[in-house]
Amino acid sequence: MTLEQILFLVFALIGLGLALASVTMRNLVRSAFALIGCLFAVAALFAMLDASLFVVAQVAVYVGAIATLIVLVVMLTRLEQQERIPQTHRYWPAAALLAAVIVAGVAWGLWQYGFFDQTPPALPAADPIVELGRALVDPEKFLIPFEAVSVLLLSALIGAVLVAGGANKKERTE
């Protein structure tokens, strides 16, 4: 095995282990931090692919913003109650079966595609960040999605305010 393969296995195992831990742990804050660790392992995998923008976006957005939000929400809830309720409900065998079928389907599909033994294409000589930036503003490429993202973010912002605004009012009347 080359060093890269070993590192890939290490990061993949860390990521999977922490993902499992974040699902099974009883302590919600700990499981949120396990999720953060898992996101970091994914960032490390991106780094091994030299996908620079993905690495920083993964850490800045997922770890920095989304995971912080999750930790915050978990801290805002009443923790001590959560540690006593059961972690599964009675439909879990059906859910497990469904999950297994989906994983098998995805694995089969990937296998059929057959890119496991292909070498990846060489990266273009130009800076991929510049290429991405050009693609974002090029009307023939991703201009519409780029602007649509801003509308999406705008609606997310408004939605967040409406939802949280209701929560705030309720809190004050209590």
Binding site: T68, L72, L76, I129, L136, V137
Partner: peptide, 28 residues
């Protein structure tokens, strides 16, 4: 704690995602 903390984190999240899109644009 009060829910206000949550709202600031939400607004930050939106701006964070926006920044990730804006930086490649600023470069190009």
């Amino acid at each position: 704690f009060r829910a206000s903390y949550y709202l600031y984190a939400l607004v930050f999240l939106i701006f964070d995602i926006e920044a990730v899109f804006l930086f490649p644009w600023a470069v190009a």
